[in-house]
């Protein structure tokens, strides 16, 4: 689910575009390929196919081209998992979906902490799948597949690979806490999921990037680095939506890292 700003839409044209695409898909759906092939074949068989063999192949090619419109993309389940170029989704559609996700969640919680926890849980479900897909894409064709066993390379790959797979761009910085040895931070100056979200003043401490924190938590868990991940707003003059993803590692991870040195 790479969210990439592909075009700036003008709202009117965007909605019309959607409508037409829906219509075109329903028309192709209503004429089920197998049924319509049969019906046209039986119609034309009376006139020429039955009597002349030479015209049959040309009829087949004509049918073949008319039932596969060139612009029709294959079903999402039939697409190649490793082709990332065509797997981009509309950023607008994603923003509307995420907005509904937040509204839905907000109706079912009491308090900001609860809301963040739920968004985290939703992100966790994404993260599990992202890790699996990423590993498959990177190591699936390799003769000696490997996985990250040390924390810092794993953190680097989250900063670049995971962010690219999910948001289409790497995160902006990684920092290590000075006070606590078990705390690391991933910083995004302009998180795409928060681009159009304005949090009201009475909920100032809410960060919708808790969703991203959930993704990071799942990836870390999957790689064997259990941690608690939270999101915090850290706006600057230049980047009003700057967000810090705070990773608090479990003790066992630090102890293991110590042993592997």
């Amino acid at each position: 689910m790479a969210v990439v700003e592909k075009y700036v839409h003008t709202p009117s044209s965007w909605s019309f575009l959607n409508v037409t695409s829906i219509f075109s898909s329903t028309t192709t759906m209503s004429t089920h390929p197998r049924l319509s092939v049969l019906s046209t074949a039986s119609l034309s068989s009376a006139s020429e196919t039955r009597f002349s063999l030479s015209s049959a192949p040309s009829l087949n090619t004509a049918l073949g081209s008319s039932y596969k419109p060139r612009d029709q993309r294959p079903n999402i389940y039939d697409r190649n998992l490793n082709k990332t170029r065509t797997s981009e989704v509309s950023a607008s559609a994603f923003h509307f979906l995420f907005s509904e996700v937040v509204q839905y969640t907000q109706k079912r919680v009491n308090g900001i902490l609860d809301l963040e926890r739920r968004l985290n849980t939703l992100g966790y479900r994404i993260g599990m799948r992202v890790l699996e897909l990423m590993v498959w894409r990177a190591e699936g064709s390799s003769k000696a597949p490997k996985r990250e066993t040390r924390f810092l390379p794993a953190l680097m790959s989250i900063h670049t690979q995971v962010w690219k797979a999910v948001y289409g761009k790497p995160a902006d910085a990684i920092e290590k806490s000075v006070e606590n040895a078990d705390e690391y931070m991933i910083i995004d100056n302009d998180p795409p999921i928060e681009r159009y979200i304005s949090v009201p003043k009475d909920m100032k401490q809410l960060s919708c990037s808790s969703f991203t924190a959930g993704v990071v938590e799942a990836v870390l868990d999957g790689l064997g680095f259990p941690a608690r991940v939270t999101a915090h707003n850290t706006p600057t003059q230049q980047y009003p939506t700057r967000t810090t993803i705070l990773i608090k590692l479990e003790k066992s991870v630090l102890e293991r890292e110590e042993l592997m040195k």
Binding site: T10, Y196, I197, S198
Partner: peptide, 29 residues
């Protein structure tokens, strides 16, 4: 006006904290 509509649909309609048909109190707008 088309630009305003663009901004409105981006910052107001995609904002989960805005209630449709209610006064716009969205900072980004």
């Amino acid at each position: 006006l088309v630009r305003v509509y663009d901004i409105y649909s981006d910052t107001v309609m995609k904002n989960p904290f805005h209630t449709p048909e209610m006064p716009i109190r969205t900072e980004a707008f």
